[in-house]
Amino acid sequence: MAEIQIKNVAKSFGAYQALHDINLTIADQEFMVLLGASGCGKSTLLRIIAGLETATAGEVWIGGRRIDHLSPKDRGIAMVFQNYAVFPHLTVFENIGFGLRMQKLPNDEVTRRVERVATLMHIEQLLKRYSGELSGGQRQRVAVARALAMEPDVILMDEPLSNLDALLRMEMRAELKGVLAESKTTAIYVTHDQVEAMSMADRISVMHQGRIVQAASPIEVYRNPSAEFVASFIGNPPMNFLKATPAGDGKWSVAGQVMDGPRADRPHLQFAIRPEDIQPAEQGLTATAKVVEPLGAHLLVTCEVDGSLFRAVLDSDMVVRPGETLTLAPQADRVRWFDPETTKAVA
């Protein structure tokens, strides 16, 4: 059992507050992704869990044991770094076995475990090589194998795929997910790549300015963003926002169209809809097409609605010319509303 509990963790670097009162529980064997733009505090949080950084306040518990005062080696964690951190003076075999040798395991046990994870990561033919003789992808495999060989309670990964090229990244993504699921370790994975987050995570914690804005399953984060930031950060192209004014009795006026909305007593709301949840229709929002981008599978149309930017992902068979006026209907059950003052979702 390796449940991770982060209780009221805060971190400041001098006057700069990098993390504000973080509370998060990660279940045993869960794959948790910390997602956010650079500088949001996601790596700092990971490094606090690893023990490479000291929290200014708060507690970290792993498997019912408080570990924030322990040094990294006593925490039952293993870590994969963004730049691999494969030791250049050791062979691949000795790299993977490094942690096991530190534990003073007998030779045959080290060999057995190194060979097992090397096979798992498909690097068994590289065991005699040095890091200088490996490609980036191979080094990444060594780094992951080295972490797995420790058979840790928790494996921490700091943007492990961001130095790989796009194709390799996609391949490694699927492979990592499979290997980690099989190893039954709890995993925390830091990334700024929302595709990685969506495709790998059991749960995503979206971070912004040192806070966790939403922690939920990928589909929940995508469909029901809890705040405007999540709505605009997740999804490519991101969610569309339009200003809505009250039209009485739970109805709201959006760009001249009256729609059903929440019964909220606010002077304004933000109407939000994903670009792919928009269909051309007889009745709807009046949009002027500005840029038309055929993407093969879809047609991405950037338009202007009520003076704001508005993107629609339409069927690729449609013919749209720039300057044309379209009538676009948002799919009613996919419409979300946000309070512009708190930026939080309004039901």
């Binding site: 690893a50 023990g51 490479l52 040094s71 990294p72 080696k73 964690i77 293993a78 870590m79 770094f81 963004q82 730049n83 951190a85 030791f87 490094f98 942690g99 530190m102 534990q103 080295r146 420790m150 921490l156």
Partner: peptide, 18 residues
């Protein structure tokens, strides 16, 4: 020498000295 090499060693069971 990248600091990550040392950090990796710490997470793999080393003290600052080892």
């Amino acid at each position: 020498i990248p600091i990550e090499l040392e950090e990796a060693a710490w997470t793999l069971g080393c003290t600052r000295l080892t």
